[in-house]
Write a protein that binds this DNA or RNA. Structure first.
Lengths: 147, 147
DNA sequence: TTGGATGCAAAGCCTTTGCATACCT
DNA sequence: AGGTATGCAAAGGCTTTGCATCCAA
């Protein structure tokens, strides 16, 4: 599987394989570059942060991953989930505790087709972020009010 | 209208009014802090960039504006369009020329209600970004192919 | 041997903070 | 006077770049 991803003209070096592994093992985590760096460093201690950035850039270019921004000032990375065999999905972001919940569910309303046809736009990918209060925080708030 | 926005405990100073004016005059433009700065500077030459940042932060806090990220490394700002009298809307982002097209249309499929009920999540706001190729770029590509 | 991959350090951007000054009530 | 607002400069945080070295084909 890994080999297939890189078969083009790029080499799947040890470092790149490490980055790939970390990303695969944390599919649901939305890691930042630095987090990938620390996790990869565990198995490859002489890995550099620069390499992580360059590898992520390469993966972005090859559409292996894509990047998101949850407003905390650093970019986060996730495997690509559009057109591929992954289901498209979207994110619920709690504005109180910052937790990001992934919803693995199709986009509603045949959105992508409608956009393509009605608005003359060739859709490549979608990102849907829903901000609000998660159940935990709602409970917490309730408890603090009732004592 | 402007007065109403600030009536709380914050002063609507000349600088803040300038920032507000720039934002109002560019409702459809998704300005960055620096762009706001330059536009505001035209009428108030001794305006500082720091003030723009601090004013934008204040406006964010008061839910007068909200911020977006189109992946170009700088935050962009727009008037708040949820719950308010603005229609919710989403963005088409051309991955070739970077143009951002606003679609003033409700989110499809009663999305926000479904999320709230099915996933136990109190929705505050949504952001939908659709990446792809705009009509202009598609034409450009076609022409370059046919000569 | 040759070109890409890598690490380190430095530079670049955007944004925030510290601090002294200016302003308004 | 007192507290907020502001500008400038400096600091911060994340990311990219320069450059010498390393590695694999």
């Amino acid at each position: 599987m890994k080999e297939k991803l890189e078969a083009d003209q790029y080499k799947l070096t040890v470092r790149r394989e490490q980055v790939l592994r970390v990303l695969l093992e944390n599919k649901d985590k939305h890691l930042s570059a630095e987090e990938v760096y620390y996790l990869a460093k565990r198995k490859t201690p002489d890995m550099g942060l620069t390499t992580v950035y360059r590898t992520l850039e390469l993966f972005l270019l090859k559409n292996i991953i894509y990047s998101l921004d949850f407003g905390d000032g650093r970019r986060r990375y996730e495997f690509y989930g559009w057109v591929s065999d992954n289901y498209p999905h979207y994110h619920l972001i709690c504005t109180q505790c910052g937790t990001v919940i992934e919803v693995h569910e199709d986009f509603p309303g045949g959105l992508e087709n409608r956009v393509g046809k009605e608005l003359k736009f060739k859709v490549e990918s979608c990102q849907l972020k829903i901000f609000g209060i998660c159940k935990k925080c709602a409970l917490k708030t309730l408890k603090s009010l009732t004592g």
